[in-house]
Nucleic acid binder design. Structure first.
Lengths: 188, 188
DNA sequence: TTGTAATTACCGAACGTTCGGTATAATATA
DNA sequence: TATATTATACCGAACGTTCGGTAATTACAA
């Protein structure tokens, strides 16, 4: 009964996400977002009535859903910890495109001075990942006191290896992080 | 022979740096920079004729000079590796204000799509830090093959712990990084 | 010592451009 | 035709930048 969308919501969010991740929130102007999606500004406003902020929020939300499904779920699943961890690592590699994609949690943490509208989501995402890493560490036999520390180290290494890979324009640090992740979590 | 400056260059660069670090390059508008420094926009152009880009470049350059002096120099110095590392860690704590200040290398790496004017400096800074960490690892007895890996880990943990501390709004991860840095570099 | 020129730092006001956002009309599909 | 979607035109505000001119200090000649 209506004209079909010229671009599906998934593809639309994916293109928007790429822009936000590559240039940051502030530099992602509507002109750039329009060009990246093939939709005019007015069309973007038709899809996101609250404008750029809504685009970013939905992008972040979708990205976190995807991350939860691809990475956190395997970590929290049942079964052999080593296998779960290997799957999570493989999906991390996919998710960050081998270290070529920056993390939205890092990108969206910086723009606004005060907490900003994204901070709660960011914090929750970090804590979910920490919890999942800690759980699989315990499942692998680590004492509860150490599990949390290993989880924090793993998350820091993930973020840091992405930053370093980007800074060096060389993805080796991220790849090395992935390789060392199992021993990092399950024991030295 | 001339009217004295109402704000010294060091203080000026320091204020600009704070803004860039807190909100990022794009969101650091001339209006904000003007307010933070007490100089009108036109006065900022008197000090930095090439505008905002020059401000950022000089801020980055000054910050890297400071970082080199405070952190890299101790690592490269002569003497007991443990003591040099302890000094570097203490100065890192100062430099990042206990984890409350973001790293410019992370902030300035994101804004521009293509390499951007800051990428060479960023890359050089990372490599200098990697080299310094690797040297002190070797000085501490690590085999050359492991020294570079430990250095990469340390840099990733530094950057990652800053990102995580910011995301969690809790500086414990950064503090823990500082505490674990010596064993990270000098041996398990 | 005084007065003037030279030099530098600073500022108010405006520039053209682009920003995010909003109408409204045209288009394409059902 | 009915309607979701897109395109065009436009808005006020903010952007980075520029310019003419003023304030403050020093150097030097009278």
């Amino acid at each position: 009964m209506a004209r079909p969308k010229s671009i599906g919501e998934d593809e639309l969010l994916s293109r928007l996400e790429n822009v936000f991740r590559e240039v940051g929130y502030e530099a992602a102007s509507l002109a750039v977002l329009s060009k990246a999606t093939g939709l005019q500004k007015a069309s973007l406003y038709h899809r996101f009535p609250r404008g750029k902020a809504q685009m970013a929020q939905e992008v972040l939300s979708a990205a976190l859903d995807c991350f939860t499904q691809q990475v956190i779920a395997p970590l929290n699943a049942a079964g052999d910890p080593e296998k779960r961890l290997a799957l999570a690592a493989s999906n991390l590699d996919q998710y960050y495109f081998g270290g070529r994609k920056a993390c939205l949690l890092n990108i969206f943490a910086s723009p606004d001075i005060d907490g900003g509208p994204f901070q709660p989501s960011i914090r929750a995402a970090f804590e979910a990942l920490l919890k999942a890493f800690a759980k699989i560490a315990r499942d692998g036999g680590a004492p509860a006191s150490e599990a949390r520390q290993r989880a924090e180290r793993a998350v820091a290494l993930l973020q840091g290896s992405l930053v370093l890979s980007r800074g060096l324009q060389n993805h080796a640090p991220f790849k090395r992080f992935l390789k060392e992740l199992p021993s990092e979590i399950l024991g030295k």
